[in-house]
Design a protein around this nucleic acid. Structure first.
Length: 228
DNA sequence: GAATGATCATTC
DNA sequence: GAATGATCATTC
């Protein structure tokens, strides 16, 4: 079976999607790769999106790159998240590219970050690099929307970061800005460039950036789920 | 280059 | 050991 041939049809509703995700819990990536007919890379160094693609296939998402939610008809975004043996996240979570131009007048309510995070199907996957990829297990999924408190945290960080971008301070932004949401490079390498706004409002070429959720945000989110 | 999927690996 | 900055594959 080829990569562009899904194992299942797109889920007709959220409950179906969640049920499918729950049915994957406990399986190893080796088992799921075999079922999908996907070759298992030795590690993720040159296949960083492999786990995400594998789960997309099993859940009926359009595997690959489309500029929309994974389950657009359901308004749901799929996020795999690597976790340790305690279920704690091992990595930050990429949300979306940070827009560096054309931001005058943008507001949180209509932002890409808010839209992407409005409804997320989180699927924890064992990510300890000492564990062979094929032996890593899929965890119990969580269908999540931000609580009022979480949305407030996200909004505050987003507004602070977008202000810096609009004011021509993009090159002063580091990953230390933001409590739960940060901006870091999101590029092929450090030579990749995109247009941004400079200190004096002039166009500059700068590193493409992305919004990422810090582990301090995703850890409690997953932990609460674990207690339920 | 931009967007999808993210993790790697050097630095602190 | 954790976090920041750097990077990888693929499609269009």
């Amino acid at each position: 079976m080829s990569v562009d041939s899904p194992l299942v049809t797109p889920p007709e509703d959220e409950a179906t999607l969640l049920a499918r995700a729950q049915a994957l819990a406990g399986y190893t990536l080796g088992e799921l790769a075999l079922r999908a007919g996907l070759a298992i890379p030795a590690d993720l160094r040159r296949d960083k999106g492999w786990v995400g693609t594998l789960l997309e296939l099993h859940l009926g998402a359009s595997a690959g790159s489309k500029p929309e939610q994974d389950f657009a008809h359901l308004g749901v975004e799929l996020k795999t998240i690597p976790v340790d043996s305690q279920g704690r996240p091992l990595e930050t979570t990429f949300v979306c590219v940070a827009p560096l131009t054309g931001n005058t007048g943008v507001v949180w309510e209509t932002s890409h970050v808010r839209h992407k995070l409005a409804r997320v199907l989180w699927i924890p996957v064992e990510g300890d690099r000492a564990l062979p990829l094929a032996e890593r297990r899929v965890g119990a999924p969580l269908l999540w929307s931000p609580s009022p408190e979480e949305e407030h945290q996200l909004r505050c960080d987003w507004e602070e970061l977008m202000d810096l971008i609009v004011l021509g301070q993009v090159e002063r932004i580091t990953a230390r800005h933001g409590e739960v949401l940060q901006i870091r490079p999101k590029a092929a390498n450090s030579r990749a460039l995109t247009e941004g706004i400079g200190e004096n409002g002039q166009p500059i070429m700068t590193l493409p950036r992305g919004f990422y959720l810090k582990k301090t945000f995703t850890a409690p989110l997953l932990a609460r789920h674990f207690l339920l």
